[in-house]
Amino acid sequence: MKDFSELNAIQLDALKEISNIGAGNAATSLSLMLGRKIDMSVPKANIAPFNQIMNYLGGAESEVAGGYMRVDGESPMGILFLIPKDQVYFFIDLIFGQPLGTTQDLNEMHFSALKEIVNILAGSYLNALSAFTQQVYSPSVPALAIDMAGAILGDVLQQIGEFSDYALVIENVFIEQERHINGHFFLLPEPKTLELLLRTLGVL
C-alpha cells in the first residue's frame, strides 16, 4: 500500500469497527470518571488530502482544548482528543465534583486533570486495540494545548505529512446528553501502522 487514498470500503469498515470498540472502552472510562452517562456516535473514518482535512473539524478557527499523545515504536500513531473550549469548564466541574458553573478559568491543576483524562481515554482505547492486534502500545505522556482547532490538528498531522499527502482520520464523538458535551477523539495512524492494523484484521 502506497497511500491512504488506496483504502477500499471493506478496509475502512474494519477500521471503523476496531475504532468503535476502542472508543466504547474509552467512553466507559469517561463515564466512570465523570459519573455521567456518556453516549457515543457511530465512528467516522475519513481520508482526505491535508488541504481538506480541516473541513471535518467544523472550523479551523474554533477554540478547543486538545490533548495529544504519540505512540512510538513498531506502530507509530497519534491520538488526539478535542473538546470545545466552552465545554472544558463543565468537564472540570464534573471531575472535581463542584457545582456546575464553578470553573471560570483554567489553572495548572485543571491542566493536569485534563491531561489525565486524555491519558485514561487513550489508554482504554489502546487496550482494545492491543487485544485485537496482540501488540503492546506505549503512548507518550499527554501534551495539552488550548487554541485554534486547525493549529492543533495541523501540528499532529505533520507527523504523517512526512509519509503521505493524505491523512486517515478516525473520529469518535462522545456525547453527554444533559449538557451536550461533544468530545472528538482522533486516531491518526502512520502508513506502516495502518498496514499492520489491516493485516491483523485480515483485510489486506
Binding site: 491535508f50 480541516m54 478557527e61 485554534m148 493549529a151 490538528l153 501540528d155
Partner: peptide, 24 residues
C-alpha cells in the same frame, strides 16, 4: 481560502486567507 499544504496566487483586489496556522 488556502488549505494546509496548499498554495494560491491571485491578482488585486483579491484577498488570500489561511486559517489555523500552528507549526506550519
Amino acid at each position: 481560502k488556502v488549505g494546509m499544504a496548499d498554495l494560491r496566487a491571485a491578482p488585486a483586489p483579491l484577498t488570500l486567507i489561511t486559517t489555523g496556522l500552528g507549526s506550519c
